[in-house]
Design a protein around this nucleic acid. Structure first.
Length: 272
DNA sequence: AGCGGAACCTGTCGGC
DNA sequence: TGCCGACAGGTTCCGC
């Protein structure tokens, strides 16, 4: 489901509601998200801790806890956090309830059970975080860094953009949109991007993510915000999901191809 | 290093 | 109506 703008939207909403609330108990209805960790172990780690600031690194949600520790969550395709009342109606896809002392319940729901939840004492203990590339909003994400990093890889540019070891946060939708706005083919090898194109790519990445975040992300089928409202960026998508429709710039029919088992949407005329 | 394929799991949609 | 395959915003692992 979510890429950086959707995760950022969830982070902002959780930050408005969650800090200061203490976990009274944890109910695990389905433990897939916990990996090899036993539900009782996870519940014991979380119970009695209070939520602090909520942050984000790439597509990972980081919940600061007091006294000490972090909840590290990844929503993958269909994970959601919903803040509900004291006795939520049990949903078919509810996986974990964090019952809070003030009577509210933080619900983690996940239809496809790909999402992950982990308690760690220190963020350095989380292997997936250590592997992440640069966040597009980090200071290190500069035009110069991008131009140099692209030179190192012969992978198709769209694949490179989606690889979280390079840049952490772009997924299928925004990779397609960024490439369209930069006028580069998704099939171009990363190392064949010129320095000038890299500058344009850098601008487009920031611009697309900024705009999508302002619109609270993209809801195609099932992204939902904490308050169960939807994102609005789907109205601004120029190529994603628009196979056969005219390119907004030149009118050529938008094409769809498969790359790395994923659909790529692009304009064969505007992008080369 | 790159790439195809399969896997994790569930739901929806379109075609026959 | 029903079955079947394709597809879905993500990530990882395996083999060539």
């Amino acid at each position: 489901m979510p890429e950086l703008p959707e995760v950022e939207t969830v982070v902002r909403e959780l930050n408005r509601a969650l800090p200061g609330r203490r976990v009274k108990g944890v109910d695990v209805f389905r433990a897939d998200a916990l990996g090899a960790v036993a539900p009782e172990t996870f519940a014991a780690s979380m119970t009695g801790r209070a939520f602090g600031a909520v942050g984000r690194r790439g597509k990972f949600l980081l919940f600061e806890l007091a006294p000490g520790g972090f909840l590290v969550a990844h929503l993958r395709m269909t994970g959601k956090f919903i803040l509900a009342g004291p006795l939520p109606a049990p949903g078919a896809h509810h996986r974990v309830w964090f019952r809070l002392e003030d009577g509210q319940t933080l619900v983690f729901q996940d239809m496809r059970c790909f999402g992950t939840l982990a308690f760690v004492q220190r963020l350095e203990e989380s292997p997936p975080l250590a592997e992440l590339g640069v966040d597009p909003y980090a200071a290190e994400f500069t035009q110069a860094w991008l131009a140099a990093a692209l030179k190192q890889s012969r992978a198709p540019l769209k694949h490179w953009l989606m690889d979280q070891h390079n840049i952490a946060g772009l997924g299928n939708i925004y990779a397609c949109e960024v490439l369209f706005r930069t006028g580069i083919s998704p099939r171009r090898r990363a190392c064949r991007v010129t320095a000038e194109e890299a500058r344009g790519l850098h601008r487009s990445i920031r611009a697309v993510l900024d705009q999508a975040t302002r619109k609270n992300g993209t809801t195609i089928s099932d992204f939902q915000r904490v308050d169960e409202k939807f994102g609005e960026f789907q109205r601004y998508l120029r190529v994603y999901g628009r196979e056969g429709e005219p390119c907004p710039a030149c009118g050529t029919a938008i094409r769809r191809i498969r790359q790395q088992q994923r659909s790529t949407f692009f304009c064969g005329t505007c992008q080369s």
